[in-house]
Nucleic acid binder design. Structure first.
Lengths: 162, 162
DNA sequence: AATAATAACGATAATCATTATCAGTAAGAG
DNA sequence: CTCTTACTGATAATGATTATCGTTATTATT
């Protein structure tokens, strides 16, 4: 139950917030699993070791952590938001391949250097041209994963929604 | 009430589907407004000239058109899906700037050539490496638009959801 | 043309993710 | 020790989307 950045909860106290058990546990869960978890995924994982936690608290906490910039919220179009730990600037950045059949999400870090360079340029130019203060971006590729190409689509239960 | 590609509804009949009035009207609406419309936006716009149409039909039709590849479904994180006409390969491609305060979406076409070139490369490489058949991609930039930077955030009514 | 088969419709109920409410608990300030 | 307020969990409410169902309209078949 330890994390790198938020350790000791200084980040919270600084803002008059408290670094409570639910918050610690949720951050910890995201830290261990490296992303793509929905609120309910997180709720269920935590439930084993901490059955009293409420789903509302999970949602509330995710919202808070997201606003604090500790986690990122993604929408891959499968009907719910998914969250992952925000990586520090120097850590390895990655983007996502989303299978439109089984919903599986594959991280990739290939090309990120070129990507990042181009995206930085774009951000700079767009900021100027449209007077738009850019905070973040998301790049998702959609397609059919290896397994689903062979008709073997037995991944996520929640396949056919939306 | 005419569109370029789907005219005469050959695309529909080819698949045993019918090119009905609701479908024509919905495509037409998307054609006229160039995108970013939610299902309800579309429903309301159509309602003036075609009050009998049902919201369920709008959703059903959008789903169908999306699967046919005539329109694209986007999720900008504001709590509902948004749709726009799929542009032909040779038409001008664009991406989106999303204001996290007022929800305004700005299209841009700057840099698309470089972008497209890089994205094609990435697609090719990822397809090979991960055995992933890539169909489409989405690139969104999130930030604060001109108006909202000045505290003047009087855009969409549906501002503060999510 | 008459009929059968089926695509599509509109209304409405159901579902599901998310948010709001509310009463109770616990941490920190004085 | 008490007061204030952040936080919690349970539960109700909301809102977007989907499923259901009886009806209508189109195409195929006779």
């Amino acid at each position: 139950m330890q994390g790198p950045i938020w350790l000791e909860g200084g980040l919270f106290r600084k803002q008059g917030l408290r670094f409570t058990l639910p918050r610690r546990v949720i951050l910890d869960t995201l830290c261990k699993t490296k992303g793509h978890l929905s609120a309910e995924d997180i709720y269920l994982r935590i439930h084993d070791s901490y059955p009293q936690i409420g789903l509302a608290t999970v949602y509330r906490t995710l919202e808070l952590l997201s606003k604090m910039g500790l986690i990122c919220k993604f929408d891959f179009g499968d009907g719910c938001s998914r969250y992952e730990l925000a990586r520090a600037r120097d850590e390895e950045h990655h983007h996502h391949l989303v299978c439109i059949k089984c919903g599986k999400i594959t991280d990739y870090s290939d090309f990120v250097e070129e990507e990042t360079r181009l995206i930085r340029e774009i951000e700079k130019a767009l900021s100027r041209k449209y007077d738009f203060q850019i905070n973040s971006h998301q790049l998702h590729f959609y397609g059919v994963c290896k397994d689903c190409q062979q008709g073997n689509n037995s991944h996520r239960a929640k396949q056919e929604r939306r």
